[in-house]
Each structure stands twice: as C-alpha cells, then as structure tokens.
Simulated scan of single mutants.
Amino acid sequence: MTPEEVRAARDRLVPDVVAGGLHVLFCGINPSLMTAATGHHFAHPGNRFWPVLHLSGFTPRQLKPSEQGLLPGYGLGITNVVARATARADELGREEFREGGRVLSAKVAELSPVWLAVVGVTAYRTAFGERGARIGPQERTIGGARVWTLPNPSGLNAHWTVSTMAEEYARLLAAVRHDTSEQSRQ
C-alpha cells in the first residue's frame, strides 16, 4: 500500500464482520485509514487487537486482519462506534460519537450478540453518556447485550501492554464461557 492509497481511504466505510448468534461483538472506535484502505479491521501494523485476541484465548491462533472472516465461526464479530475512517480518533466530534452510539444500539438489537465489547472506554463514555465508566463489565445493556469495555488496542495506547490487555480480554472470555455453560444447563 502506498501512502497515497492509505490517505485516499479517509471517510471510507468498512463493512462489519457480523453474523447472527455471536457471543461477542467487538466494537472499535472507528476504522483507521489502513483499515479502510485494506478493508480489514484493526489492520494497522501497530494495532495489537489480533495478538491480544489470540493471547486471551478467543482464537486458537493469531489471525491476520485478512482472516477476519473466520471470526463468526468463533462466535465473534467486529463493528465500530463511528463508521467513517480517519487518521486519528480525535478527528471525531462528540455528536458523531453520540450518533454512532444510537446506530450501534440499533445494530446490536438486530444482531443480538450476548456481549458488546467496546474497545476504548473513552469512546464508550462519549457515545453512551457514561462518564464514570471504567474498563470491565458495565451495569447497562445495549440493544439487549451485556456490555464490557476493553482497552483500546491501538499502539498509541501506551498505558496497556499486550500482556495486560490479554488479561483483560481473558476476563471477558471467562464471562462468555460462564454464560455459555449457564445456557447449556437450562
């Protein structure tokens, strides 16, 4: 990919990776220019989503962004709070996040995942007016799904390492497995 091709991806939309019956719908902030240029979520080389997804136990091996289509087979999907691609998330306005939250709520209600995992607590706070939200499970549901906020896997998020992010994602996986075992007993 040339720098010009990446820059030309500004404002493009990237299709969600979704299916019915998802255990977890991961929700990014918005697509990066690299994601929009390639059509693959979390495609920027500095993004740690794919290694963390594997290290936490969600996938049996580390997938490449180009293998995102395998996720529904694991009960996983990907969407974004805001659909349009930007170079940086700080290019998005507060109202754009709020509108993204409304669109996301409708999407989650339609898809009915068990969990909505928002990767970026600040995006969650802004989109849903939850100023006190912290990383971890949330009290509210969105579109019928339970909500868990996770650390943003962007390489710009220096507060979290791959290891500490994988631990937090693994906490969500434990909740998913608990839910699954509860449902199978009913």
Rank of each mutant, 00 (worst) to 15 (best):
G57A: 02
V121C: 10
L156C: 11
F97Y: 03
R88H: 12
R125P: 11
E168G: 08
L70E: 15
G132P: 09
E139T: 15
G21A: 03
W50Q: 01
Q186I: 11
D16R: 10
G21Y: 09
Q183A: 07
N157W: 00
L111K: 05
K107N: 10
A87W: 06
R171Y: 04
A8Q: 07
P65T: 09
G39E: 08
T59I: 09
W148C: 13
M34A: 15
W160D: 11
Y124W: 01
L33D: 12
T79D: 12
P113R: 01
Y74L: 15
T161F: 01
E67K: 03
D16I: 06
V121W: 05
E182K: 14
L25Q: 12
L25S: 04
E110D: 08
D16T: 04
L150D: 12
H44Y: 06
F58V: 02
N30P: 09
A89E: 11
S105R: 04
E95K: 10
G100L: 14
V114N: 08
A43V: 15
T86R: 15
V114I: 06
I135N: 11
F58Y: 12
P51S: 00
G144H: 00
L33K: 02
R146W: 03
A133L: 06
T86W: 04
G132Y: 07
E110K: 11
P151R: 10
L22N: 01
G143C: 06
L150F: 01
M34I: 15
G20R: 15
R84G: 11
R94L: 06
I142G: 05
V103F: 05
P151V: 02
R125V: 13
A87D: 13
S181N: 08
A166E: 02
G155Y: 00
E139K: 13
L92Q: 07
D11S: 01
P113G: 06
V17Q: 03
M165H: 00
P15S: 14
G93V: 01
Q183N: 05
G28H: 12
E182H: 14
R7T: 06
K107D: 08
P65N: 03
L116I: 10
R98W: 07
T79G: 14
V82F: 04
S66D: 07
W50P: 02
I135S: 03
S105Q: 05
H44V: 07
R131G: 15
L63T: 02
P113Q: 01
H44L: 05
K64N: 07
G20P: 13
A37M: 07
M165L: 07
A145R: 00
H23Q: 10
E168D: 10
P60V: 13
C27E: 04
P151W: 00
Q62V: 06
N47A: 14
G100A: 04
V18A: 12
V52R: 02
A8M: 07
S32N: 12
H54D: 05
T86S: 13
D11H: 10
Y124H: 08
N30I: 12
G75M: 08
R7Y: 03
A170M: 13
A89M: 03
S66K: 11
T59D: 03
V162S: 00
T149Q: 05
D11I: 04
D11T: 07
G46Q: 15
D11V: 00
E139H: 11
A175C: 07
H41M: 02
V121A: 08
H54R: 14
